[in-house]
Measured scan of single mutants.
Amino acid sequence: MSGIALSRLAQERKAWRKDHPFGFVAVPTKNPDGTMNLMNWECAIPGKKGTPWEGGLFKLRMLFKDDYPSSPPKCKFEPPLFHPNVYPSGTVCLSILEEDKDWRPAITIKQILLGIQELLNEPNIQDPAQAEAYTIYCQNRVEYEKRVRAQAKKFAPS
């Protein structure tokens, strides 16, 4: 494992614990031996107030490669969400998460999670990743928002 990646992720964890947006979660997972795995984080993004996503808490896994922060983490909703920019596998399609697009090593975990929260309610229809959600979003916004509200209710924190 890269010392650069681990040191950056340790800084990220410290900064997150000191200050993070209300309702968001970002925690490194534990290895079988109980030690912390900084390369694999369990996160959760709350649906934004005043949107059909409100009330939901959407679980996301963030996986970092050894060359982080040169390369972005892979962000994957578990379980996958109904959304035009979420692949059926759950992987998020967002330009700041793509090395050859808008990724920059200075982007923080907090910025990534806030960017994904923004994307939930403002899909990028130029870059669809899920045919069904994309089609319904474009053709029947009322039905799309109904499905999103049902999903938010399903993923409401207990």
Results as ranks from 00 to 15, higher is better:
33 D>H: 00
3 G>D: 14
5 A>Y: 13
127 D>G: 08
21 P>Q: 00
59 K>P: 09
74 K>Q: 14
65 K>M: 15
31 N>I: 09
40 N>H: 14
70 S>F: 09
139 Q>M: 12
5 A>E: 11
69 P>H: 02
135 T>Q: 12
25 V>R: 13
111 Q>D: 13
7 S>R: 08
24 F>T: 04
126 Q>N: 11
33 D>A: 02
8 R>G: 01
48 K>A: 11
14 K>T: 07
9 L>S: 00
24 F>G: 07
30 K>S: 11
29 T>K: 13
44 A>E: 13
158 S>T: 13
47 G>T: 05
73 P>A: 12
85 N>I: 03
21 P>S: 07
39 M>C: 09
52 P>N: 15
18 K>S: 09
116 I>S: 11
128 P>T: 08
113 L>T: 11
139 Q>N: 11
104 R>L: 03
131 A>G: 13
7 S>D: 06
158 S>Y: 02
123 P>M: 01
63 L>M: 14
60 L>V: 09
74 K>W: 04
60 L>K: 04
96 I>R: 09
112 I>P: 02
81 L>C: 05
52 P>M: 10
134 Y>H: 05
108 T>H: 14
28 P>Q: 04
47 G>I: 05
95 S>L: 04
111 Q>C: 15
30 K>W: 03
46 P>F: 05
80 P>M: 13
111 Q>I: 14
120 L>P: 02
120 L>K: 02
93 C>L: 04
56 G>V: 00
72 P>E: 09
2 S>T: 11
142 V>D: 15
51 T>G: 06
158 S>N: 12
147 R>N: 05
97 L>A: 11
9 L>P: 01
84 P>D: 07
77 F>P: 01
15 A>V: 11
69 P>W: 06
144 Y>A: 00
69 P>Q: 01
39 M>I: 07
91 T>M: 10
156 A>P: 10
104 R>M: 03
27 V>C: 14
63 L>F: 13
44 A>N: 08
37 N>T: 12
84 P>F: 02
124 N>D: 01
35 T>G: 07
88 P>F: 09
78 E>P: 03
77 F>N: 00
10 A>Y: 01
103 W>C: 00
150 A>F: 10
104 R>D: 06
150 A>H: 11
70 S>W: 09
55 G>P: 09
99 E>Q: 14
96 I>A: 02
38 L>R: 00
41 W>A: 08
156 A>W: 09
21 P>Y: 04
70 S>R: 09
44 A>F: 03
68 Y>Q: 00
144 Y>D: 08
94 L>R: 00
50 G>C: 09
2 S>E: 11
1 M>G: 07
120 L>A: 06
73 P>M: 15
94 L>Y: 04
